[in-house]
């Protein structure tokens, strides 16, 4: 899987290589939305192939897709950008399965994509907020490992939170 963006003579392209060897050619303005890549470009220039040994091609592709969308939205029109981005972000996180969500989150964190980390951590938080303990366990498929009585003790300490 390799992605190429529409090239114009003025935009510089960066070559990114994921851990599984998949390479991406991305506009510099898009890729530098990621803090880690921005730092590398600033320090070492944009000529070389940038190797990202901790990100798999699938998730790097998704992170770059998000960056591209946001970069495009921000240049297209002045008004309503926030609305467009918000709407698009909502669509982006809506159908993510948990495995993809966590891998994507770790990839975004590794690449210092602060805005994307914010979006994805908020998604995880929304899966916890307002839920009861049993519902949280069910959502994340987690089994309780408390000894009998231990959980009740915690509940008793802050009983108001469990009403």
């Amino acid at each position: 899987m390799s992605s190429s963006s529409t090239t114009t003579t003025t935009t510089r392209l960066l070559m990114l290589k994921a851990s599984d060897g998949v390479t991406f050619e991305v506009e510099e303005a898009v890729a530098t939305k990621l803090g880690a890549i921005n730092n590398m470009v600033e320090e070492e220039g944009s000529e070389d192939l940038i190797c990202l040994p901790n990100v798999n091609g699938k998730f790097l592709g998704m992170v770059l897709e998000w960056c591209k969308k946001h970069a495009n939205n921000n240049t297209n029109s002045d008004k309503g950008n926030d609305e467009v981005n918000k709407w698009w972000d909502k669509e982006f996180v809506m159908d993510l399965d948990q495995n993809t969500l966590y891998h994507l989150l770790m990839a975004a964190d590794y690449l210092s994509g602060t805005e994307l980390v914010d979006l994805l951590t908020e998604k995880v938080a929304s899966m916890i907020r307002g839920k009861k303990v049993e519902e949280i366990r069910e959502t994340f498929k987690i089994k309780s490992d408390f000894l009998p009585g231990q959980e009740e003790e915690i509940r008793k300490k802050n009983s108001w939170a469990f009403e």
Binding site: G130, K131, R137, K143, F146, I154, A161
Partner: peptide
């Protein structure tokens, strides 16, 4: 409230 509930999920 959610933080306190999370304490009960797992050790």
């Amino acid at each position: 409230k959610s933080l306190l509930r999370c304490k009960c999920v797992q050790k």
